[in-house]
């Protein structure tokens, strides 16, 4: 494998030295471009109290291309599908090399606080979120309690 770009090293060091509250990201031993991530569910959201595992991969031409990110823990959210794929503009056409691992993960955490059922990825979830928000929120809380807890 080609040498790891300095920027990735610098980001990794900063993630360790000045961690973002509510977010941890740690590189894998066998591949420094692959990060194991935990995002805590934001306060006052249906995901509060949950610990969500994600995986993040920095492609070859990072930071010129966006990281690939996916939820590993099940989550009930209109912009995240059953496979854990995330609908977020900065991961696609709105990517900029001025964004970083930490800003990407913060944006994902913010998406948990602000679900957007008008731009759905999980259609059934988004539909319920629109027609019966309180039931959708109940489901999200239930999934968080059932799947995203720590020992």
């Amino acid at each position: 494998m080609a040498a790891l770009p300095r920027r990735i090293i610098k980001e990794t060091q900063r993630l360790m030295q000045e961690p973002v509250p509510g977010i941890s990201a740690v590189p894998d031993d066998s591949n420094a471009r692959y990060f194991h991530v935990i995002v805590t569910g934001p306060e006052d959201s249906p995901f509060e109290g949950g610990l969500f595992k994600l995986e993040l991969f920095l492609p070859e031409d990072y930071p010129m291309s966006a990281p690939k990110v996916r939820f590993i823990t099940k989550i009930y959210h209109p912009n995240i599908d059953r496979l854990g794929r995330i609908c977020l503009d900065i991961l696609k056409d709105k990517w900029s090399p001025a964004l970083q691992i930490r800003t990407v993960l913060l944006s994902i955490q913010a998406l948990l606080s602000a679900p957007n059922p008008d731009d759905p990825l999980a259609n059934d979830v988004a539909e319920l979120w629109k027609v019966n928000e309180s039931e959708a929120i109940r489901n999200a809380k239930e999934w968080t309690r059932r799947y995203a807890m720590d020992n």
């Binding site: 941890s24 740690v26 420094a32 939820f71 823990t73 059953r82 059932r146 799947y147």
Partner: peptide
């Protein structure tokens, strides 16, 4: 250069534990 520190090892271990626990609860996709 980047080095794997103890803090990093602890965090990796913590991630593994969380994964196994959630897996046992059927919480992993």
């Amino acid at each position: 250069k980047f080095e794997v520190t103890n803090d990093l090892r602890l965090l990796q271990e913590r991630m593994r534990q969380l994964f196994s626990y959630q897996k046992s609860k059927g919480g992993i996709i």
